[in-house]
Computed example of a mutant assay.
Amino acid sequence: MHCSNSIYNTIQEDLTSAQSEIKLRDEFLSMASHELKTPLTSMLLQIQSALHNIKNVSLANFSVANLLKMLESVETQTERLSKMINDLLNVSLITTGKLELEKENFDLSKTVREVVNRFVEKLEKEGYTLSLEADKEILGNWDKLRIEQVITNLLTNAIKYGDKKPIEVRVINFNKSGKIHVKDQGIGIPAELQKKIFEKFERAVTSSQFQGSGLGLYITNQIVKAHNGKVHLKSREGKGSTFIVELPVAS
């Protein structure tokens, strides 16, 4: 009888877990369809407007400034759409166990500088300042593209939730690990959400003013784990967040 109860309880637990996964999947699919549709609709409207102006407005009255504004909007929506699709592809690789690393020896400090430099224009556009402090050289054997993805996700997160306040990035060699600190002074993460923030489809806030899939930190954590590393979070609501990535360095 005891054995039967144990089997029953196990089945119930598995069923509850499966139902929870299905609910999360359905919620994500609903959210994803909305997230994908929004930039597509915006791009279509901008393109239709541009075509209308080109076809119906004389060259003498044609506004290059307006066309440039439309193209910049299309570019923004394209980037958003591309990130969403990449997130979906990455989650698919992770959940099916097909996330493969192509490791090579490289300098972590140099790579962080390169990624930060790619954000210069976006930081200026969004009204942010960023300070970078990096040790001279931190060598390790990692997948460079995946580590760049981790840094990109953390910087994107800091810009999204940083409340236009200064962002700090540090890269140090400490205790046989290359450590990347990305600190913002924004809205922070409530204590009750901090343990779940690295799970699939979880977000620091539910407000509609912050767009996103809730996959960035999950993907970041899985990439770091695949390198036998760790991701830590220090955050206080209303005081900002610091994400710390630890990656084992070459001996």
Results as ranks from 00 to 15, higher is better:
Asn105Arg: 15
Arg113Ile: 12
Glu126Val: 01
Asn90Met: 13
Leu81Cys: 14
Val74Leu: 02
Met84Ala: 05
Asp107Arg: 02
Arg80Trp: 14
Glu104Trp: 01
Val91Pro: 10
Ser92Tyr: 15
Thr111Phe: 03
Glu121Gly: 02
Ser73Gly: 08
Met84Thr: 15
Val120Tyr: 08
Leu93Phe: 09
Thr76Leu: 11
Ala60Thr: 12
Arg113Pro: 03
Thr96Asp: 15
Lys110His: 14
Leu88Thr: 13
Glu126His: 00
Glu124Val: 03
Leu132Gly: 03
Leu71His: 07
Lys103Tyr: 11
Glu102Val: 01
Asp87Glu: 15
Leu101Glu: 04
Ala60Gly: 10
Leu88Lys: 03
Leu81Met: 06
Glu126Lys: 00
Val115Pro: 01
Phe119Trp: 04
Phe106Tyr: 07
Thr78Ser: 00
Tyr128Glu: 03
Asn86Ser: 12
Glu121Lys: 00
Thr78Ile: 12
Ile85Asn: 14
Phe62Leu: 15
Gly97Arg: 14
Ser131Glu: 12
Leu130Trp: 03
Leu89Phe: 13
Ser131Met: 10
Ala134Arg: 03
Leu101His: 00
Met70Thr: 11
Ile94Phe: 15
Val116Glu: 00
Thr111Val: 14
Val120Asn: 09
Leu88Val: 15
Thr78Phe: 12
Asn90Cys: 13
Asn90Gln: 13
Ala60Glu: 05
Phe106Thr: 02
Leu89Trp: 12
Gly127Asn: 00
Asp87Lys: 11
Val74Asn: 04
Arg113Glu: 13
Asn105Pro: 07
Lys103Cys: 12
Thr95Leu: 07
Glu75Leu: 00
Leu81Trp: 06
Asp107Ile: 02
Asn117Asp: 04
Leu132Cys: 04
Glu126Gly: 07
Asn66Val: 06
Glu114Lys: 02
Gly127Lys: 01
Leu89Glu: 13
Leu99Met: 10
Glu104Ile: 09
Ser73Val: 05
Leu89Gly: 00
Lys122Gln: 12
Val115Ile: 07
Asn61Ser: 14
Met70Trp: 00
Leu71Thr: 11
Ser82Glu: 15
Glu114Tyr: 09
Asn105Phe: 06
Phe62Asp: 10
Val112His: 05
Val74Pro: 03
Ala65Met: 05
Thr111Cys: 14
Lys69Asp: 11
Ala60Asp: 13
Lys69Arg: 05
Ile94Ser: 10
Lys122Pro: 09
Asn86Trp: 12
Leu81Thr: 14
Leu130Tyr: 02
Arg118Met: 09
Val115Asn: 05
Glu114Asn: 08
Phe119Gly: 12
Ile94Trp: 07
Ala65Arg: 01
Asn86Cys: 08
Leu71Lys: 06
Leu71Cys: 10
Lys69Val: 03
Leu130Lys: 07
Asn105Gln: 13
Val120Trp: 11
Glu126Leu: 05
Asp107Glu: 11
Asn66Cys: 04
Leu130Arg: 00
Asn86Pro: 09
Val120Gly: 07
Leu88Trp: 10
Thr96Met: 14
Asp107Met: 12
Asn86Tyr: 13
Ser92Asn: 15
Val91Cys: 01
Phe106Leu: 08
Val112Glu: 09
Leu68Thr: 01
Glu104Ser: 02
